[in-house]
Simulated scan of single mutants.
Amino acid sequence: MISIEGLSKFFTSNKNKITAVDDLTLDINEGEIFGVIGYSGAGKSTFVRLLNRLEEPSAGKIVIDEQEITAMNSNQLRIARQEIGMIFQHFNLLWSRTVKDNIAFPLEIAGVSRSKREERVQQLIDLVGLGGRENAYPSQLSGGQKQRVGIARALANNPKVLLCDEATSALDPETTNSILDLLVDINEKLGLTIILITHEMHVIRKICNQVAVMEEGKVVEQGDVLDVFLRPKQVVTKRFVEQVMGTNEEDDGVAYLIDIYERGKLIRLHFVGETTNQALISQVAKKFAIEINILQGKITQTQAGAYGTLFVQVDGESNEIDKAVEFITNETSVELEVVRDVDGTIS
């Protein structure tokens, strides 16, 4: 659906060359919700603005639905943009227009007749849950309602792709969840490809199928959301995952727990999908002559299933501990990592 090859963007400031996006290559499948995450300055917002050429690329190639966006002249690009909707962090609504007139604006520009505009606007108002607010002005709306207007407006011309640039970062957590639920609903009903830019890992966790992690203009890690949660490779990715899971052994809380237990093995267990429902702790405690102390843990949901991490201390005779570790490793689908061994060695 979307193919990006060698995409770069350079800026010049005080005669210094600044690289915002650096030789980025990605493929995004049709109909998926693809997340791009990074801290401020990572280049993610510049990247998403390059896709519809709100920013002009310095190098590289963008193909959307077999159309090479980077090769288009201004007239061709104007037509192509009708199939690429975009929503923004700060809504970008026309404050002198009502809800329905804001939504109708792209249709006016496209030359759609009044009767067809009115029909389409009403469809979109119903889709985003703004019934009864058609004649309200942006100043009379909550943040979540404003973003729903922005989403409806972005969908006015039946786009194939929806770009979301920090679409929920100006909203409170409850409103954020309602907007994310709406995006999932739109994705399922319309088969829309959504590219979502964010610096919040819980947004990625909640609705994305795939995620790319950006740092210093590059994609440093990419994959299925569940795989990235389970096996983050880069330091920046681990930091994002820890935002959601809160199970970093370097944090003060876990470090304290590690320090006070001086015997046995300290183990981190990774649960994925159906394994999160297994009664593993009680099963192992009954099967082997060991004691298990649960130190810290959390289970969270992703679009692909549940993911959980549990820190435990296992105490007892060393041969019984080794048997329990071997059993978990070889006889279950739970992944096991020894954080500290009986001799105090940190893994």
Rank of each mutant, 00 (worst) to 15 (best):
M86F: 13
N73S: 05
W95A: 04
T98A: 04
L93D: 05
R97H: 14
G85N: 11
L77D: 03
I84T: 00
N73C: 04
R78K: 11
I84D: 01
L77T: 10
S74C: 00
T70S: 14
N75G: 03
T98D: 09
M72S: 01
T98K: 14
N102R: 11
Q76I: 03
N75L: 04
N75F: 13
A71Y: 00
F91Q: 06
K100W: 12
V99P: 14
I79K: 07
S74P: 00
M72L: 15
S74A: 11
I103N: 12
L94K: 06
R78P: 06
I87W: 11
D101E: 15
A80P: 02
I103Y: 14
N92R: 11
F88K: 08
D101V: 05
A104M: 11
D101F: 01
R78A: 14
E83C: 02
R81D: 09
R78L: 10
A80R: 13
L94W: 15
L77H: 05
H90N: 15
F91A: 07
R78F: 06
I103E: 10
E83K: 15
R81C: 02
I79M: 02
N92G: 06
S96L: 04
N102V: 07
F91C: 07
I103H: 14
L93G: 06
W95I: 03
F88N: 09
F91M: 07
N92V: 05
S96K: 13
Q76C: 04
F91S: 08
S74V: 09
M86V: 06
I79R: 00
A71V: 01
I103M: 12
Q76H: 06
G85K: 01
I84K: 00
F88Q: 08
R97A: 08
M86G: 07
W95Q: 13
M86D: 08
S74E: 15
L94I: 14
S96E: 14
S74I: 14
G85Y: 10
S96Y: 11
